[in-house]
Design a protein around this nucleic acid. Structure first.
Lengths: 339, 339
DNA sequence: CTGTTAGCGCCTTCAA
DNA sequence: TTGAAGGCGCTAACAG
């Protein structure tokens, strides 16, 4: 029975309600003996602090929302876990919703979170997200929204990997290997992340003589099925580049599998590289060259920024880019140019 | 400004507050013309329904809590996503906490969820969970707790895989292959799931002549690192069984990697099998034999049960076991007895 | 340091 | 059908 109220506690402890309330909030001006008596009474009566009631007055709920597309991709799982950790550390509880990359679903989730009075929302936007519907939902309550890993608006905060640099690092590595041609496989077409990675790759390949045409590759879902589909589409056209650049490690897993279905061996018949560097990349055979994008750091940084934004809603929109790091492994390092 | 209240709306629409409230809840006895006027006013004023305020009166928050250990394991990620889906479908928002298999952390998360007035909690218990601290936190508010995938008490509801049957199915498959000896690798020692899988394996191997001694294998964390560590411990003792049974696919991934570091090939030098059948199992080389335990079904079933429990707190504790299905793949099927 | 008072926004009840 | 009133549990503001 969550029926034990602060009033009951204060009565049992022989103090006023305001005193009990102050003890709860750790006020130091209350003498220790009184505070102890109050705490004892709370324990004995089985008192449970009701945050909803507190919220009615304080106008903050100590909850945050997180909407991501799909956590079966370990990259997003790591991101989610680090955000949860930072939120809890700051005393917030976290509502989580999975949009499954469906915009409508995402908007519904955003709406219910706003109704639940969240103090802020981390949004890893579904493809097709736009500012105006988001604002329509959010502006009425002035809930700050932070864009995670992908962005669709300059007016909202953003924290994500430095995709441009990541693309550049990877391209430079590949051209140094003597790769003659490379193709990007998969990834959600309209995402800022994919566009940035492409721009980075183009910049990195510039002047190296490596042929790289981003328009060849079709967009796919960001998972293994997308990778299989993407590489199948390329091979079925009779195209056979020296290097396959997966949009992400999740996509690369599908590329490995599809290559083998066709009796091709990744790392030998074609080099393969990717982005994210999830744990699995290193454990695959051959180990997968990947650009680490550090989801844990992105999560920590995002939490820090959103909390700052909650404190100061008038601050100008911020963008934060986390530096990537290339991890060279056998999937590219063992590959040799065809004679 | 979540300052627009139902009173403002009713004033603007020229109706009473109770009428506006009834429109919100979809009452049909209100004439459509009136309802439309109210809805129009809500839209024009930018009204946001405040669930906290509603909760003060209705004594339900329309929120549920979910505490899992770690979603970087795709098995738990799938479980989490299916629970979120079912919760949203039923109109609930979901608080999520990751215990990282730390009991103390788990208790803190449980406590803050209770303070947030959750109507129920899904708990995938951290190793070392016990009934009395959980009850200490939960009983005061009478929040129902459902045990997910592992259990530590008969007094709480439970939904998880039928681990006994899963172990049996796998053992029978292995003995039919002519395996002479098998060892279980990894998994959290004190978990009900591990104990049940062992019992199932023992039952399945009984009378087959396959040597299987569960005491040989050390417990580990439920991830790739645990798998590598587990198999390393076995091989370093000079033990070399015909078959390695991983506690889970996540563990199996580490086994594959460690075997290869030692120039052993899974599926040829030793057969490997596992539990869970996450997407990756099929994509590995060699594809991994695994017993599917269907996290999506478990999640759906769990959500159904918890919602029923919320409606009827006096119901006797329920346990629900989801049937597994063996997926035979090359990691065992291609293995041949050593001469 | 304590007690009192007045809400936060909504829902329920009762009377009109 | 509508209006008025009371209260959910807490906190803030003020007067003792």
């Amino acid at each position: 029975m969550s029926k034990v109220t602060l009033e009951d506690v204060s009565r049992a402890a022989g103090v006023s309600r305001s005193t009990a309330s102050l003890v709860l909030r750790g006020n130091t001006r209350i003498p220790e003996s009184t505070a102890d008596r109050v705490r004892l009474a709370m324990a004995e009566l089985g008192y449970v602090y009701n945050r909803h009631a507190a919220n009615m007055r304080r106008r903050e709920s100590m909850t945050l929302g997180l909407i991501v597309t799909d956590i079966r991709n370990p990259y997003f799982a790591g991101l989610t876990m680090s955000i949860e950790e930072a939120a809890h550390q700051a005393g917030y509880n976290l509502f989580v919703g999975y949009s499954r990359d469906d915009v409508e679903r995402q908007y519904v989730q955003l709406e219910t979170m706003v109704q639940q009075q969240v103090d802020g929302v981390f949004l890893l936007p579904a493809t097709g997200s736009e500012l105006s519907p988001v604002c329509g939902i959010v502006d009425r309550s002035e809930v700050p929204v932070l864009q995670l890993a992908r962005y669709f608006s300059d007016e909202l905060d953003y924290v994500g990997p430095d995709n441009l640099l990541a693309g550049q690092q990877l391209a430079q590595h590949l051209s140094s290997l003597g790769v003659g041609s490379a193709i990007l496989i998969g990834g959600p077409e309209p995402s800022s992340a994919r566009a940035e990675r492409i721009r980075g790759l183009e910049a990195g390949f510039a002047g190296s003589g490596v042929s790289f045409d981003p328009s060849v590759s079709a967009a796919t879902t960001n998972n293994a099925a997308g990778g299989s589909e993407g590489i199948a589409g390329i091979l079925d056209q009779g195209i056979w580049p020296d290097c396959l650049i997966a949009y992400s490690d999740a996509v690369a897993l599908g590329i490995y599998a599809e290559l083998r279905r066709r009796n091709l061996e990744p790392g030998r018949d074609v080099s393969v590289a990717s982005f994210d560097d999830i744990t699995m990349a290193e454990l695959l055979l051959p180990p997968l060259t990947s650009v680490a994008t550090y989801p844990e750091r992105i999560g920590r940084e995002a939490a820090e920024l959103l909390l700052k934004r909650i404190r100061d809603p008038s601050m100008a929109p911020q963008r934060s880019h986390i530096s990537p790091a290339l991890k060279v492994r056998a999937s590219t390092a063992q590959w040799r140019p065809r004679p």
